[in-house]
Simulated scan of single mutants.
Amino acid sequence: MTDASSRSPRFRTLVQQDIAHFARRDGEAITRGFLLRLFLLTQGFQFVLARRIQDVLPRLPLVGRPARRIWWWWTCRRFGAELAIDATFGGGLYIPHPYGIVVGACTVGRDVTILQNVTIGTRSSDDIGRATIGDGTYLAAGAVILGPVRIGAGARIGANAVVLQDVAAGEAAVGVPARTVRSAHNADLHLN
């Protein structure tokens, strides 16, 4: 029997996709200087890299699962943010400021941006299923996604929005509770 970690994309591929997204967002070419700054000085990238390392630790014989749990605990303490062990993340994860983020069990697609103080979790212990965040989604600072909702590809969730229901692909959601305002491609929400 194989587990999800053995079927997931390789560590190197995911890290390369993460680096590419950081370079795109920062408007930089991938040079030695950029890589040096990314690995040594960019806490957001260090947080994403720590997650990628956490995902490969279970492959170690005997000690992998306990090592993963210890690594997860250390990462939570080091960065003041938590990505649940059973959450899955596609390549190109961009988290520039890894502070106050709490992500429960969910599935996050490729090239997703998560800003500080984002929460993805359940509304109650009766929730069945997990949130699904589509490819190319942008979650602004303080966004809250609760329950087994689906956020479509390319959607934008505004700052401090509380999402309790599905958001269609390419749409923008703002407010408490969140409501769709118009297509994300035409919205001038100043989410960056």
Rank of each mutant, 00 (worst) to 15 (best):
G92L: 05
G92D: 04
G92H: 04
G92R: 03
L93Q: 04
L93S: 07
Y94D: 08
Y94A: 06
Y94L: 11
Y94I: 10
Y94N: 05
Y94M: 12
I95M: 13
I95L: 07
I95H: 12
I95S: 11
P96G: 05
P96A: 13
P96R: 08
P96H: 12
H97L: 07
H97V: 10
P98E: 03
P98K: 08
P98T: 04
P98G: 05
Y99R: 04
Y99S: 07
Y99W: 09
Y99D: 00
G100L: 02
G100I: 06
I101D: 01
I101N: 04
I101V: 15
I101A: 07
V102K: 01
V103M: 15
V103E: 07
V103Q: 10
V103I: 15
G104N: 13
G104K: 02
G104T: 03
G104P: 00
A105C: 03
A105V: 11
C106R: 01
C106D: 05
C106Y: 11
T107E: 14
T107G: 05
T107I: 14
T107N: 10
T107W: 00
T107V: 15
V108R: 10
V108H: 07
V108A: 06
G109H: 08
G109F: 14
D111M: 05
T113P: 02
T113D: 11
I114K: 08
I114E: 09
I114T: 12
L115C: 06
L115R: 15
L115Y: 12
N117D: 14
N117M: 12
N117I: 01
N117A: 15
N117Y: 11
N117W: 01
V118R: 02
I120A: 09
I120K: 02
G121R: 04
G121T: 03
G121Q: 04
G121F: 02
G121L: 00
G121E: 03
T122W: 00
T122N: 06
T122E: 02
T122K: 14
R123E: 14
R123V: 12
R123P: 00
S124G: 14
S124L: 04
S124Y: 01
S124R: 13
S125Y: 02
S125A: 13
D126S: 10
D126T: 11
D127S: 09
D127G: 05
D127P: 01
D127V: 06
I128W: 00
I128M: 06
G129E: 09
G129Y: 05
R130L: 05
R130H: 10
R130M: 01
R130P: 00
